[in-house]
């Protein structure tokens, strides 16, 4: 699993990356009450806002950690947004993206680097 400074995580299987927000981010938001995930087929450049996550008092855009095309949005989140709090780095994933260049993922932080980054905040 790889991480961004914007608190997204990426996990790659073949050329498909599963993307979500980290536990740190989910905790900072508080109770998640609404998630908007992208439709399949949407083309993303790195840094594009591709999803929205909301708590009662806050709303955040989620940015694409790598370029690619959306294969699937996690439709289950619209009915059960609390999954993002309960299991942010598992069943609370936001989207699966067919990655344009898998090497882009390797360039992101690993767990240790991300933990160090969090400690520096």
């Amino acid at each position: 699993m790889r991480f961004t400074k914007d608190h997204e995580w990426v996990s790659v299987d073949g050329d498909v990356a599963t993307v979500g927000i980290t536990k740190y981010a989910a905790d900072a938001l508080g109770d998640v009450v609404f998630v908007e995930v992208p439709d399949a087929g949407k083309a993303l450049s790195k840094g594009d806002s591709f999803a929205v996550v909301e708590s009662v008092k806050a709303a955040s855009d989620v940015y694409a950690p790598v370029a690619g095309e959306v294969v699937e949005g996690n439709a289950a989140l619209s009915a059960a947004p609390e999954t993002v709090n309960a299991d942010p780095e598992g069943s609370g994933w936001f989207a699966k993206i067919r990655v344009a260049n898998v090497a882009d993922v390797d360039a992101l932080m690993d767990r240790a680097a991300y933990d160090a980054y969090l400690a520096s905040l």
Partner: peptide, 12 residues
């Protein structure tokens, strides 16, 4: 994601 600093308990 764009970080927020206003997340706070919204449940009793």
């Amino acid at each position: 994601m764009s970080m927020v600093n206003v997340g706070r308990p919204t449940r009793p």
